[in-house]
Nucleic acid binder design. Structure first.
Lengths: 214, 214
DNA sequence: GGATCAATCCTATAAAAGCATGATTTTTCA
DNA sequence: TGAAAAATCATGCTTTTATAGGATTGATCC
């Protein structure tokens, strides 16, 4: 410790978890010449990431939302459970409210879209390291129609029906699948429309997809 | 020219066109220490790319499929029209048969998914520079649910109708909006179902949402 | 132990979407 | 300038959804 340089002591130790070599390299490269930041490790899946965290000290972990083994959202939870001192920052190509809220729920300190520039990324690191939150997503950038103000509370059955609707099943097919009557399926379906405040399946699925429910 | 080093003469001059700084940096970084390859320029949109090509000599242009102004597919066509000597290599996060075939139709010498590793990328450059073709996509690799086999090519009108469907409009409403007959709307709608290989609106919207089309 | 909610089921009608088949006009492009 | 693609419109029929208005059972929670 006595031999560690001041630069190394001061720098923020970063782990990048992403299965895309390009993103990994891009981030490493962007952060390579940045002051006070050090990429101490990279991982391409959740298992590697956990293993690395067990053996190394890390300040901030950049977590891709889409990983080969488990989702970044679940990984975020695991990291916060097992390594509460590690701050997490979600990385995604998308700009989805549902993702953001779910990552934050799972303890993430921020959310960064992959189209971010160098300034955004450094700003995010600074904010998060200082104990704050960061997100550069622009919500509802293009929402021509009525946007979902809140995520409706859905019952177990409604979720099941919603998923099957999204898979393209008709009411009779869903009824058969769930061993219930067609009229029951229809009831759930109508409740879904009411809860999402829409009037047809198309809007329903669009909103549900946007919220990551299907 | 006499002062140009052998290394520079021998090296493949590369232009990268992508609106994601991360990808830009990642590629530059990956290619920086590679032998015989030189990134001579980068652009974040089609206009910049064309401008650069007018003023510089380039061997291979890496084109992102999703650009802010025009699609990489169209840009590819423009490049091949105006600069036939420039070889093009499509870059995409996706692994979609339809994209591939359309890029090839428009003169691309290859197709590289962004999750490719350094070896793949260098291999692609070598192949393309030698006058060959390269593509590392594995078609239909993993299909978790009923995944989109192809990203269908949609006409202008079909896209418009798709968006309006997703907004929750019915055929009569769409007809009114677009000043066309209900039967015409229905035709476009049926074509959408056929192109996406689904049998109802729910699946259609789910796929379209997953592909970021709405 | 009464209220609330979820889940189940019902009848009935209107509206919309899906499916088949085909035709005309306009645009695009080689 | 001629072929191909896109956009337009049509008819007829079937299936599915949407809407309205209920009712019953079981679990959960103060």
């Amino acid at each position: 410790m006595a031999l560690t340089s001041i630069k190394e002591i001061m720098s923020v130790r970063i782990l990048i978890v992403d299965d895309h070599p390009l993103v990994l390299e891009g981030l490493k490269s962007l952060l390579a010449d940045a002051e006070g930041v050090r990429v101490v490790g990279t991982a391409t899946n959740a298992i590697e990431a956990i293993a690395f965290l067990k053996n190394n000290e890390v300040d901030i972990a950049f977590l891709d939302i889409n990983l080969p083994d488990i989702s970044g959202i679940d990984l975020c939870k695991k990291v916060k459970d097992q390594f509460p001192e590690v701050k997490t920052l979600a990385l995604s190509t998308f700009n989805e409210r549902a993702y953001v809220s779910r990552m934050i729920q799972n303890g993430a300190s921020g959310y960064l879209i992959k189209s971010s520039g160098k300034e955004d990324i450094l700003e995010a690191i600074a904010q998060v390291q200082a104990g704050g939150y960061f997100m550069n997503v622009q919500f509802d950038q293009v929402t021509p129609t009525a946007a979902p103000k809140t995520v409706p509370f859905l019952t177990r059955r409604e979720k099941e029906v919603l998923v099957l609707i999204a898979e393209g099943l008709t009411n009779p097919q869903i009824a058969e699948q769930l061993f219930i009557s067609v009229t029951t399926v229809n009831s759930h379906r109508q409740n879904l429309l009411i809860k999402f405040e829409v009037s047809n399946t198309a809007s329903l699925i669009k909103l549900a997809a946007g919220l990551g429910l299907i």
